[in-house]
Every structure is written in structure tokens, then in C-alpha cells.
Amino acid sequence: MSELTINTTQNVTINFTAASIGHRILAFGIDLLIMMAYLTSVFLFLSYSGLEYKIQLMDTWSQIAIRSIIFLPVMFYSLIFETFFEGQSLGKKVVRIKVVKIEGYQASFGDYLIRWLFRLVDIVITSGILGFIFIIVSKKYQRLGDMAAGTSVITLRNDVNISSTILEEISYDYKPTYPLVIKLSDNDIRIIKDKFIKAKARRDEELVLKLVSKIEEVTGIKNQSPNNWSFISTVLKDYNYYTQSM
């Protein structure tokens, strides 16, 4: 595994550990087994229930339509899971890797869609060879789909204690200020807190201002605190309040 250094548009440097090619292949293999298990189960059910025989008696277009519907979950597997599990398919969850924007923030549906569309070139047509080559030679360990979407795949294996790094002490009667903090992810909060701690150590007003700008841009929150320092502190506490209450 290699270090992936990201310089955001706000000139904030973020360090991740890029997922190794081995972990990415392992995650893909697990996903492939899941898809094969699904198809095998469906076709066995159709065969033993007698439905397969009835399908074969249908006209050609009806058969194509039914078989296409059966294959839809396989076709859209990665897009569906990465969208609803924030950059992780079932295979990625097992291996503990995930898709993130190269700016370090949570990828969007549009990003996952672009990656999914490029699977045709990266994986399907070239049997994964093209994707493998690009991951190996690119500086940010990206296949073509990642380059087009502005994403990369990182490992979460070094984040075993991520919950402890993002937790903030709040009193039982704490009153939150910014409900829109739930638009942020655990990974966003980890980055914000890490940079905020460094900014406090250096009394770096410029870094704090950049963090405030990014939070406002991503969440739509408007700073109502007396200063930027208290604003970020409140955002961290509010995030913990809402996520612990869910």
C-alpha cells in the first residue's frame, strides 16, 4: 500500500493510504462471487419451479425481456451498492476499502455513475487489464473511471480507531446549532478535526478559514458563531450529537 497525498482546492494537504491492487482485486473477486451466487440461485429456482420451461415457451422478445430483468441487479451491482453504502460495494466492505473524491470528501451519485460507465472499458471489454495498468502507473492509483470521476480508492485498515478520532465530548443537555452537519460523512469530520487540531497548534488562521469555507460549501451552513474557531468546534460537536442520536 502507498501513501496518497491530496492537495485540495483550498490548498489543504490530506494523506490517505491508497488501496493496494491486491485488495482491489480481492474486493472485485468477492463481488463477482456474490453476483454469481445470485444468478445461480435465480436460475436454480426457475429450473426447479418449472418457470424456466414456461419462459422457453414464450416468444423471443418476451424471453429477452425476462432474462434482462434477471440480469439487472448484476449490471447495476456496483453502482447501487457504492451509492447507498457511500463508496463501498459488499466486496469493498469486507476488504475495508472505499471510493472517495480526490479532494478527500464523499463522492456523489454522479461520480459513482461515471466510474460504473467506465467499467465497460476498464474491466469488461479488456478483462480488467486496462484498469490494472492504469492503477499501477497513475500517481493517484486510479483506473480510467476514477480519473474521469475525480475519485480514488483508499483503505480504511488504518482507521480502526476512527470513531475515537471523530468523537467530541458533549454534555447530555447539549443543544446543536447546525442540523445540516449531517451532510458530512465520518471521513469528512475526521479530516476537519485533524486539520483543526493542527491549525490550533500553529494558530493558523488561514487554514481555519479554508476549513470554514469548505464546510459552508459542502453543507450549505452559514457561520453564525462569533469566530471561525468556535464555528468549527460547534460543527464537530453538532455532528457527534446528531450521529450519536441516530
Rank of each mutant, 00 (worst) to 15 (best):
T165Y: 07
K92Y: 02
I197N: 12
T8K: 10
D111L: 06
L72I: 14
F43K: 05
E216V: 01
P179D: 11
K183H: 14
F134Q: 13
I14C: 00
F132T: 15
G91P: 00
Y241C: 02
L26F: 10
S163D: 08
I182F: 03
V99F: 04
K193Q: 09
N158Q: 11
S41M: 10
I133H: 07
F118K: 12
S68A: 13
S233E: 15
F45A: 11
N15E: 00
E86L: 03
M75D: 09
A107D: 11
R24P: 06
I189Q: 02
T17V: 10
A19H: 05
I133N: 05
Y174Q: 03
V100R: 08
L46C: 05
V212W: 07
I215R: 06
T126A: 10
L39W: 07
F71G: 03
L130A: 13
L207D: 05
I30T: 04
G128A: 13
S89N: 01
I14R: 04
G22L: 04
Q56M: 15
S213V: 00
I162T: 01
F132W: 14
I66R: 10
T219L: 08
G131L: 10
Y174N: 03
I55C: 07
D122Q: 14
I97S: 03
P73K: 04
V212P: 01
D194G: 11
F76Y: 11
S230Y: 14
V181D: 04
Q63F: 11
T151I: 11
A37E: 02
R24I: 02
K139V: 08
S245E: 12
